[in-house]
Amino acid sequence: MNARRLILIAVPYMWLLALFLVPFLIVLKISLSDTALSIPPYTPTLDLSQGWEGLKAFWAELDFENFIFLTEDDLYWKAYLSSLKIAALSTCITLLVGYPIAYGMARADESWRPTLLMLVILPFWTSFLIRVYAWIGILSGEGYLNQFLMSLGIIGEPLTILNTNTAVYIGIVYTYLPFMILPIYATLEKMDDSLLEAAEDLGCSRISAFWLVTVPLSKSGIIAGCFLVFIPTIGEFVIPSLLGGSQTLMIGKVLWEEFFSNRDWPVASAVAVILLLILVIPIILFQRNEQKQREAEG
């Protein structure tokens, strides 16, 4: 039985060590290396055949040069800040769009709820790429939105939306909306209706009952939803590269270009390491919120 337990633990453990932790350590190591015109395009490479001396020489050559480079070139700072800004603003918009939908779902007739829930989950199973792609046809210069607005006579000239930050916001809100709706719906659906009746019985109008009871009680869902949108949005690549323009700065795109276009692996690795450091804070806050919610449910 103990051998079996060992295998059960060891197999997934080893897999994750080899394909998650080790690769990440490699990224960390390369971020401390120097760019070189060789294959692989960085030095030093660890040569174990040289034994202890080789290892010491290897250590000696690692430095923070790439990180210093990141601080000197303001492209990176701007990209990080702009990613954070885009992520934060689109999270707020997603919340404003998603909350009324989640609320409407939770207040809908019980027999309708599974269907509504399925309708929210369905896009989640549909290709992310296709959902982003769908907006290109809508937002482009001769796209459906401009055709529609011009046929109504609201605008005379086509609006330029595609390849701007506006298109990026639309794309993020659209693709991440289910992540906002689901946790909020989950908290609202669990809420006991008699709490609202009690609030009204104690003198609240419907609107003040909403602000004093419904919103505080869905707080954990709101927090979870916001993090579920905010965290992946920071490192987002597909949306800025398809809907954004040349002035759209997002760190995921920068990393991709650094790696594939410039073939600067050490700098790309350094970008990745900093991105992770930035993400650690919201991830820890998110975990704490989840923990609290689990404890509250006993």
């Binding site: 633990i9 994750l16 060590l17 690769p23 490699i26 990224v27 490192g235």
Partner: peptide, 23 residues
């Protein structure tokens, strides 16, 4: 172990991809 289970869920894809490629 549990950290390694949950971390990939929030890890940006660009980082996961980059690190595996380097491996």
């Amino acid at each position: 172990f549990s950290g390694m289970i949950y971390a990939p869920l929030v890890m940006p894809e660009v980082i996961t991809g980059l690190s595996l490629l380097l491996l």
